[in-house]
Amino acid sequence: MLKRISGYIVSCCVSFTVCVMVLSVAHSIDGKVMEFYGWKENFHLFACCFSISLLMFFTDKLTEKYSLAVELLVKFADVVACVFGLGGLIFRWFPFDLKWSIYVFALALIIYIITFIITIFSLYFANEKTSNEINKKIAERKMKYEQKSD
């Protein structure tokens, strides 16, 4: 359980970092995105990332028996719900018109994809380590068995 929670904390931190990076890149392009971004917005952004991770913690339990595609869709729905609900309605990050909604949706999608790629690769490397350890144990087992049969 503790390991699982730590995974969500890491995911929250990764998504926060990616958010700040993507917003910075977007600001460097159009010079508007981070115009009103201050210390308060920094906390708001972290609160949003945290609530996404919290929501994922619960929805992951519902989707754990479904395919990866279903899980990814539900996770993205978690992201959209938090960004529009918390960011749009409560923190008033953006006005609720079509132009801004598309813009925010696109940004959320980009951040989600980048976070997803980072998570997938870190999971792959963790599994690679696990499989090496298991293969070692299997080899040890086989050696013991061969020694016994000799």
Binding site: L123, N127, S131
Partner: peptide
């Protein structure tokens, strides 16, 4: 043998 897969599975 066991091998890691890119979809998070083994």
């Amino acid at each position: 043998a066991v091998r890691a897969s890119l979809n998070g599975k083994l």
